[in-house]
Every structure is written in structure tokens, then in C-alpha cells.
Design a protein around this nucleic acid. Structure first.
Lengths: 191, 191
DNA sequence: GCTCTATAGTTCGAGACGCACTATACAGAA
DNA sequence: TTCTGTATAGTGCGTCTCGAACTATAGAGC
């Protein structure tokens, strides 16, 4: 997680560190409006999970943390499951904008399989199923993109809250295609 | 970090969870023989860091943890900095082999920049410097591969402790080349 | 009203993270 | 000789992340 400064509404709230996960929650809330942690988790799995993996337990806790620090409003159902819903407050929206405009570090690639190869495992064994995994992921992303394009969206791009999501899907599709190639190359010639 | 079972020398040691970082340390020790944490950190930065990022503070602590659990031997210099050196013990070697042969999960891609794009940032701004970053990384890996190939190594591949390292460099070079392409594609057409 | 399954969520302890700081060695200048 | 600069080597610690395992609620079908 990147280093971030402490931020908080100075009046009522506890200062917390805003982590990349915080911004993930806030950017989903900006797209969805008011949402329960479960709604957020669902949305996450179709989008952010592909370039910023977060386990669901972490993601469930994050909205409460952010609400406590004054970035989100919280509202609780009175009947049934008495679920909580969260929405972005002004301070959250501002923090999100500021972060989005600041420079980002390089991307990270993490691959336990590659570490096994390093430790002497046979690349052909380690990567045997990988091509299929990436092909499946590719199909999944293409599905999301198709859905997104069938959705009605405003003419004016600056009004369109789905533009960012669309761009990340396109990038994800590129990435998966490249990975498929790159793995094939590697299996053919691992050294 | 992947889930791993608890393992320990049953006699003298505290049970710890072996994490992927543990195996990273042990695989380096297998290649290097006896080494100080700093030696390990150096080696890490030229190899594993590229597919399994670990902050140096974590990496410094890990050998002590592993030694305590009976996977490594520990020896301390008597003069100067009184540094500690570590080496793989039999139980460590066995744990490493067992892990290396077991299946690995999929790889992970993590990119804060992509999250900024998702949140509405302009891809051309976010990815402006990325191509160069990957080109530099590519050059770095090519340098390591050149060095490695100049080193004298045993004829018999099964004797060659550097085979794994070489394979990961080749994979890394593929990966960086693909990323350069993939980013160019994306910047030209981000949606 | 019971039981099955999908959905929706919580708990908690160990580990990871990274900022900020400390310490040691060794070279060359004062 | 001591000073001061810089590269090397390492530590402390609070906050956050991780994931296994568990709990709870809703609705479908019997």
C-alpha cells in the first residue's frame, strides 16, 4: 500500500491513514452512490479486484473505518438485516480527487509460481494451467465490457461516471492478451 | 501471502507459519550457501524482487524467524559488526522442496495508477512515464542475464543452481517487453 | 415449520508494510 | 588525528493487511 498522509475531518473524527484500499472504496461509492459493503464487494469483484486485489474481509471493514474518520456517511436499515449503507461525504470526495490527480508509483507483479521456478521447479509444470486461467479471465473481462457498453450512458464524456471503469476493462483485456502470449513464449523457451 | 501449513522441527523450535517470504529467503540461501541478511537483501533485489516484492525490513527479520523455528542455522561474527550469518538446515531444504513442487495459484497484478484511471484520472497522464520505467527495468534485467551467462556454470543442468534464476530473468524480460507494448496500446486507445 | 443453499457478514491472530531512525566503515580533507 | 561526508548495514514500531474459520439471515422447496 502506498504511503499516504493522515487526513481527517478535524472536528468529530479519528485520524486514519488513507490507504489505496480506502480510495478503492471511495471510487466505487462515487460510481454507485449509496451502497452497502456487500454492494461494494460485488462491484469490486467485477472491476478493481483485477488490478488491485483486496480480500473481502478487508473490504468489508473499510467503509466503517472511513465513516468513523468522517469521509463517509452511514445509514442503517431499520428492519430486516439492519444493514448499513454508506455514501461519500464532501471530505471523501475531495480526498479522492486529490489522490487521483497525484502521481502513482509503478505497477507490481506478484507470482508465487515464478518463485517456484526460481527455486528450481520446472516452468512447464508450474505454468501448465496458466494459459487457460488467463484465457478465462480475458473472457470474463470481455463480458464485463460488453455489459458496460450495452448500458445507457450520457453523451457528454465528462458526465459519464463509467468512463474510468471502461478504460480499466480495456487495459485489463490488453494485459490478459499479453500475458497469454508471454506465457507461451516462456514455456517454449524457459532458458 | 499464500496460506501455508504450520511446520517446525518438533524438538527445539517454535512453530511458525511458512509464508511465501520464508521460501524466498530459503531459496536464496540454497543458491548462496551461508549468507548474512544483507547478502540476502542484495541478492533479492536482483532477482525475486521483480516477481515477489518484499520490503527490506520484512526481509531482514525473516531469517531470524526461520532460524528460531529450526529451518536455518545461525552463526555470529566475533569481531566488527558481529553480523549474523544463516544457512539452510535439512528441515529448511525439505520444506523448500515440498513447497516448490506443490501447485501455485495465479499471479497478481497490482497497479495504483489503474485505480486512479478507474477513479477518473486521465490515462495519458497516469501512464506518461510508465513506458520509460518498464524500458529501464528491461535493461536492468538484460544486464543481470548477461552477467549470469558470463558466470561459469556446471555442464550438467541438474547441478546448476543458477538455472532457476536464469529462467526467471527470461520470463521477466518477456514480461517487460509485453508491458511496454501493452501500455502503448492502452495510451493510444484508452476507450 | 423445517432444511438446504446462497447470500451477507464478522472475528481474530499472525504477518506485512514502510516511515523514520540508528549504527558502522571507510575515504579524504583540515 | 579528528572531522565530516557518504555508502553500507540494520532496527523499532504502529498501523494495516491477510485469510482461515466461523456466524447469521433470507428465501426456495418440501
Amino acid at each position: 500500500m502506498q504511503a499516504e498522509k493522515m487526513k481527517a475531518d478535524p472536528i468529530k473524527s479519528k485520524a486514519i491513514r488513507l490507504t489505496t484500499t480506502s480510495y478503492a472504496v471511495m471510487s466505487l461509492l462515487e460510481m454507485l452512490g449509496e451502497a452497502t459493503p456487500y454492494d461494494l464487494k460485488q462491484a469490486l469483484e467485477h472491476s478493481i479486484q483485477n488490478f488491485w486485489p483486496v480480500p473481502h474481509t478487508t473490504f468489508y471493514e473499510e467503509p466503517a473505518r472511513l465513516a468513523q474518520a468522517g469521509y463517509l456517511s452511514q445509514r442503517q436499515e431499520s428492519g430486516g438485516r439492519r444493514r448499513k449503507s454508506y455514501a461519500l461525504l464532501q471530505s471523501g470526495r475531495e480526498a479522492l480527487r486529490e489522490w487521483a490527480e497525484s502521481p502513482a508509483g509503478p505497477s507490481q507483479y506478484r507470482d508465487e509460481g515464478m518463485l517456484k521456478v526460481f527455486a528450481g521447479a520446472d516452468p512447464r509444470v508450474v505454468y501448465a494451467g496458466r494459459g487457460d486461467w488467463h484465457r478465462q479471465k480475458l473472457a470474463e473481462l470481455e463480458g464485463y465490457l460488453k455489459n458496460l457498453r450495452e448500458r445507457e450512458r450520457p453523451e457528454d464524456p465528462s458526465e459519464d461516471r463509467w468512463r474510468g471503469a471502461e478504460a480499466t476493462l480495456i487495459a485489463g483485456i490488453n494485459y490478459q492478451q499479453q500475458m497469454i502470449e508471454s506465457i507461451e513464449r516462456f514455456i517454449e523457451n524457459p532458458g
